[in-house]
Write a protein that binds this DNA or RNA. Structure first.
Lengths: 179, 179
DNA sequence: TCCTAACATGAACGTGGGTTCATGATTTAT
DNA sequence: ATAAATCATGAACCCACGTTCATGTTAGGA
């Protein structure tokens, strides 16, 4: 792969994340290409379809979350932190900072993409480990499962509600999870 | 207004609610008209724009909720029920049975409509009365406000998650609200 | 019954936006 | 330096979908 092609791929991904995250489904491929400093044809060379492009952006986010979870599991393994706290922090971060990702999910759903399974499964395996540990420490309500957490995360507010409200949302919901 | 025109208006509203609720933004005006047993032109006579049509459907739902709330306030006034229970029931019903309305809201948002204020304001006034009463009975956590309830209701899961999960969602969240 | 205003019809139009492809420019290995 | 493969360009294409309007139909009162 040529060096400039790699640069372009990265620029396109970055532009797509920024624009789609902020502008929703109505941002066109032309706009994304322009923001990436590239022509439409180049965009289509790297991502043959709008669906592919959005999927790539989401995959990137999913990978980042998995990385965070791996680090969290590691810290808990070394007894540096408590599992509940790690779960709570992830919960809060996804809600407050990851609000734009919910726009992405909507766009993906509108394009017929978004397979929750393959995307969220790796993260769930890691999260399950944290949940188990938290349960043994009796820090999470006994009946709260990983599916519950995924369900709630799936309904977190998007960019339509401001950051303070998103924070408040986490506070309200988190109360029902810890013991 | 002619009798057949009235019938058509009703049929169009019903078809729009059914189709948009289930099919999201991609259902066309042609499909809605066909489902209502009417030609597109007739649809446009009654609702000059897709935005108007969706707005009408949402207004209908909003009115129904206001009616339910008025009945609830009434029952509480006659000491037939507790305010918390009424709030809880509304919460559950909106989550479980009103899942399709969230699709509507998304479609409305995509069309540039959806003014939460004018639509939700009447309901909030009534809900506030129930919240006040519940607070005096110390049945709701002291810091839980009407805005909190509206915030959570705004993030309820849609038709994408099945009914059991929606019920579970309510259970989890409701725990954080009652004392 | 007949008239007319209200209403319904559906083919055609315009536009926005995703996608393509013939042409031209760069990179990189020899 | 030069060739050849890889890559970039962007005007044009296509099609779905909201919307319109000239024409035909129907309801309901006089």
């Amino acid at each position: 792969m040529r060096a400039d092609a790699l640069r372009n791929r990265a620029a396109i991904l970055r532009a797509a994340r920024t624009l789609v995250t902020a502008g929703g489904p109505e941002v066109g491929m032309d706009e994304i290409a322009a923001a990436a400093g590239v022509a439409v044809g180049t965009l289509y060379r790297h991502y043959p379809t709008k669906t592919d492009l959005v999927a790539a952006v989401m995959a990137e986010t999913a990978a980042a979350i998995v990385a965070e979870l791996e680090a969290a599991v590691d810290r808990v393994g070394k007894s540096e932190t408590r599992a509940v706290d790690e779960i709570g922090e992830l919960f809060a971060r996804v809600a407050v900072e990851g609000a734009g990702d919910r726009t992405l999910r909507q766009v993906a759903a509108g394009l017929g993409a978004y397979r929750a399974d393959s995307l969220e499964l790796p993260a769930r395996r890691l999260l399950a480990a944290l949940v188990d540990t938290a349960h043994r420490a009796q820090a999470l309500r006994a009946d709260v499962t990983v599916e519950d957490l995924a369900l709630l995360m799936g309904t977190m507010p998007g960019l339509a509600v401001d950051e303070d409200a998103r924070r408040r949302w986490v506070e309200l919901v988190w109360r029902g999870l810890v013991s």
